[in-house]
C-alpha cells in the first residue's frame, strides 16, 4: 500500500481576478507505516496540497495515486466538530460501526472518557483537537492526514498531545502525512521530513530520520532540529 504524489502545478484566481501560483513541484511517495512530515513557512500552500491529497480539490496539474479503497482519516487545522452533537456522537457519525471497546480505548488514550457526552461548545481547543484525533482514528484509517493538529496549543499541552499521536500512529499500519511549521513536532513524529519552499511550494529537500520514533533520544532530536535549521537557512 503506497501513496504516490506528483503535483506539477496548482493555481487559483483571487476575487480580484489575479492568478496565483500555489504549488509548483511536489513529488513524493509514502509507504504504509511511514510518517511523512511537511515543514514549510506559513501560507506556502500546505493546506492546499492537503486538500488535493484528501480528494477535496481536483483542479490541479499532476497525479495523485491513493491506495485503492483506502479509508481516509483527517485532522483539520480547526477541529471541525458538529456543535450540535456530543463528543461521542461526533465520532459515531464518522465511524458508525465502531464497537464500544474500541471507542473506550480511544477515549482512554486521548483522555476523553469524562467528556464523551459533552458538546463541542463546552470543550477547550486542546480537548476539541483530541476529539478530532479520536474521530480520525475511530474509522481505522489506512491513510491519515494531520493538518497542523497542535497549532495554537501551549507547549506542555502540545507535547502531551504529540505523545498521544505517536501512540496512535504506532498502534496501526497507516500512511501518515503531517503538516506542521513546528520542528519539534516534525522531528518527534516523522520518519521522513520534506522541507517546502515559500509559495509556490516545491519540495526543497527530503530528510530521512533513520532512528525509529520510539528510540529517539533528546540529544538526537536536538541534533536533527539544529541540522534542519541549518538546511533551511542554507536554502534562503
Amino acid at each position: 500500500m503506497q501513496l504516490e504524489v506528483e503535483i506539477t502545478g496548482k493555481h487559483f484566481e483571487s476575487a480580484a481576478g489575479e492568478r496565483h501560483h500555489v504549488l509548483a513541484d511536489i513529488k513524493f511517495s509514502l509507504r504504509a507505516g511511514e510518517v511523512g512530515v511537511f515543514v514549510g513557512p506559513s501560507g506556502c500552500g500546505k493546506s492546499t496540497m492537503l486538500k488535493i491529497l484528501a480528494g477535496l480539490d481536483h483542479d490541479y496539474q499532476g497525479k495523485v495515486s491513493r491506495p485503492t479503497a483506502a479509508r481516509l482519516g483527517m485532522v483539520f487545522q480547526e477541529p471541525r466538530l458538529l456543535p450540535w452533537r456530543s463528543v461521542e456522537d461526533n465520532i459515531r457519525l464518522a465511524a458508525p460501526s465502531i464497537d464500544e471497546k474500541r471507542l473506550s480505548e480511544l477515549f482512554d488514550v486521548l483522555e476523553l472518557t469524562e467528556h464523551r457526552s459533552h458538546f463541542p461548545g463546552e470543550l477547550s481547543l486542546g480537548l476539541a483537537r483530541r476529539v478530532a484525533l479520536a474521530r480520525a482514528f475511530a474509522i481505522e484509517p489506512d491513510f491519515l492526514i494531520l493538518d497542523e493538529p497542535l497549532a495554537s496549543l501551549d507547549d506542555a499541552l502540545a507535547a502531551h498531545l504529540r505523545e498521544q499521536i505517536a501512540t496512535l500512529v504506532e498502534s496501526r499500519v497507516v500512511i501518515t502525512l503531517l503538516v506542521t511549521h513546528n520542528l519539534d513536532d516534525a522531528v518527534h513524529l516523522g520518519d521522513r521530513l520534506f522541507l517546502l519552499s515559500a509559495r509556490p511550494a516545491r519540495i526543497l529537500q527530503e530528510v530521512p530520520i533513520p532512528t525509529p520514533r520510539t528510540t529517539r533520544s533528546a540529544a538526537e532530536i536536538n541534533h536533527i532540529k539544529a541540522d534542519l535549521v541549518q538546511r533551511r537557512l542554507a536554502k534562503i
Binding site: A54, G55, L56, R71, L72, M74, F76, R80, A94
Partner: peptide
Amino acid sequence: RSLDEMATVFAIPRGR
C-alpha cells in the same frame, strides 16, 4: 463549507 468538507473526507453518505 468546512463541515461539508469534513463529511466528504469521512465519506459520510449524502443522506446521513
